[in-house]
Design a protein around this nucleic acid. Structure first.
Lengths: 256, 256
DNA sequence: TGTCTGGTTTGATTTGCATCAAGCCAGCAC
DNA sequence: GTGCTGGCTTGATGCAAATCAAACCAGACA
């Protein structure tokens, strides 16, 4: 483990509330492992023995059925994944694969479950993390069931712009075929969706996307705070911070 | 509150592990309320003040965007809902509406959050509940992204058969237009999907669905334990019980 | 009983998306 | 350089699902 890695992990919402002792015990049995690009970390259906913490690199969660595959999330550091399976001590519903060279901290599931038993504050943090994840998935489902492909792409771009505090040009952090699968379409159709956004001020050059007229794009995308976690709140002070500061990339990845 | 109601609530996975004192405190501030059919219980975007427990009747969770609406889950007794929003003390992402006359126990969110702080076992139970819910949503997303409409319907029918331990005839518990929305299609297409299943031994009479050739239907549906919670496990003893005995109807509702 | 209403079904048409196929382009090995 | 390879794009075609429209049917109700 590199200097600073533990601190980065400890500052995750999942752990920052835990008692120092809890954190120490949980990470005592953990180990860091490096994986090359395009390596399967976990296969759906397999028992989950570790909570994974992505320290460096990018990874993907995907699901399979009937010889088809769909990307469910893209993970970027620092984030944890498959917490739900760890809590229930059961098999994974998603497979995980590295997109590039990755460095992962693997914390034994037993340690996590024990820590939950001993430290109520940690158990609460787990609950908050899972609740945030749950809500991210609800957003994803609404995104997919209520919007068409072009709208999903438009909102994804707006989310990227908001999250990477980018200016008018945003960078896609991974291949377009991955993005297509994440957004629930074929690479061909993603290409056509980008073409459709051309009329709304969007131009593409490799992995760089220029948004010339954010207003026009928003008019098409109709972002909604109840689907897109970045979207502007209706003008009220009631809710000033959605507690979903969440460890994984779900929100960004699934278009917020 | 009727006699026996409290016992039914206490026997939920969410509460059966809690200390009796915890349960007493949490339900002390709770009250039972009855609602007529087709009544909005909760509007997406509104702050969530209560954890709802459906004691009697049927209710629906749905989401809205751009004048469209989609059903996200059907709830049947006894189940809790919007736990995630309660844990995070934030606004609802889904609206809730009664489908028929309903009886609900409403537990103040404060009481739930306090109980989590005081009782680590309860906090663990909340985590398990949310983890189960999370996994239910992952299943739902895989179901929608990987399967076509007819396949979703076929699997839904098989799930119904398995859960209601029905024989060869199953009962749809709610209107077909609701089911259509839940499965992500229009009522017209649900009708056509049923017609398509006719060749595979499925006949419909009102809300009664007869499955003449379960084998043929399974061949079409290709149920998968990693999507459909009812599906037969591959032949191993490793996992004998998925811990997702979960309070709500998600699994059944969203086709398991 | 007749009439109204709303859910369901069926058919015709259009739209959206997937599939198939070819071409393009950059990176890279040789 | 040449010739790969793999990702991306573009076009043509086919299929699945939404939409539009009309008919049907059952229950509610006067």
């Amino acid at each position: 483990m590199r200097p600073g890695d533990l601190e980065r992990v400890q500052s995750l919402p999942l752990f920052q509330d835990a008692a120092p002792e809890t954190f120490r015990v949980a990470t005592a049995g953990a180990h860091v492992q490096r994986f090359p690009a395009h390596t399967m970390l976990l296969l759906e259906g397999d028992p989950v023995d570790f909570l994974y913490v992505l320290l460096d690199g990018q990874a993907e969660l995907h699901g399979t059925w009937n010889d088809h595959e769909t990307v469910l999330a893209i993970l970027r550091p620092v984030s944890t994944f498959i917490l739900a399976a760890v809590v229930l001590d059961t098999v994974a519903l998603m497979s995980a694969r590295t997109l590039e060279r990755c460095e992962l901290l693997m914390i034994p599931g037993d340690a996590i479950r024990t820590a939950m038993r001993l430290d109520a504050r940690f158990a609460q943090a787990v609950s908050r993390d899972l609740a945030g994840g749950y809500r991210g998935l609800v957003r994803t489902i609404k995104n997919h069931k209520l919007r068409g492909g072009v709208e999903r792409l438009a909102n994804y771009l707006l989310a990227l712009r908001a999250s990477d505090n980018a200016g008018s040009t945003v960078r896609l952090h991974f291949e377009k075929r991955i993005l297509a699968s994440l957004l629930g379409m074929t690479p061909e159709n993603l290409s056509r969706a980008f073409a459709a956004l051309h009329d709304h001020g969007v131009t593409v050059e490799g992995s760089l996307v220029h948004i010339a007229k954010p207003g026009a794009l928003e008019a098409l995308a109709k972002p909604d705070p109840l689907i897109d976690n970045h979207a502007p709140r209706g003008g009220d002070i009631l809710i000033d911070a959605d507690a979903e500061i969440w460890s994984s990339e779900w929100n960004r990845a699934t278009s917020r």
